[in-house]
Amino acid sequence: MKRVIAAQVEGNARIAPDIYQLTLSLPDAEEPARPGQFVNVYPADGAHLLPRPISVCRQQGSLLTLVYRAVGDGTRRMAVLRPGETLRVSSPLGNGYALPEHGHVLLVGGGVGVPPLLQTAHAAKAKGLSVTVALGYRDALFLKDEFAAASDALFIATEDGSAGFHGNVVQLLAREALSEETAVLACGPKPMLRALAALCAERKLPLQVSLEERMGCGYGACVGCVCKLRQNGAVVQKRVCKDGPVFDGSEVIFE
């Protein structure tokens, strides 16, 4: 059964402006997260009763690492958690990325969409795939060394030009020759995903995108978070938390 458990905070370090790396130890063995899955984090105070869905950056045994941006009241409260404190988290939820059986994957991350690709990169390497990673940041980099260790090639883009390519990550990729055998797995802001979907359509590359939406329950009961897909000519609505968060990039309707 899936469950919500009290995990102990092992560390909660600021690794870039507003970006925190939270490491939790789970009381006993949890089902391992698949690449691209998320956990619900329950802030549990009167003003923030609903869970915050946070993608899994890394899970190693009973250690769970989440990298998040302290952007609203709920995540800002997470940012003040100290080692030894407890935090309620759910089992891994949602469908993750489908890794190909062989060949090459290109992982494309933007901003706070970067973290889940780390677990994905490790899983792809473990499967013997060749892994290229392209990461886009506004300014400050984070997790760069971790990605360097988990990939065969790493591209960096920054919007302010402080590191790597000056521009966004899709502009960077548009200049590269991408092999036709590449499966593209992406997570990032909607404008990035929209532009990437256009690029992949043009290059005829299969694309999987991880979407974000304001959620209620985060496990599929309330139908608060839906996205629109075009499937077989018809527009269908899917729950981001349960049917996703990863969807076929060629089907997603980016509004």
């Binding site: 009167g46 923030h48 609903l50 939406e213 304001r214 209620g216 309330c222 139908v223 608060g224 978070c225």
Partner: peptide
């Protein structure tokens, strides 16, 4: 029924607002 556009959920002290629209 297609329900309402998103966002459908908002938080407030001690509760939440929903406008799923009976999708």
């Amino acid at each position: 029924w297609a329900g309402n556009p998103t966002p459908r959920i908002a938080e407030t002290y001690g509760g939440m607002l929903n406008a799923v629209g009976l999708q």
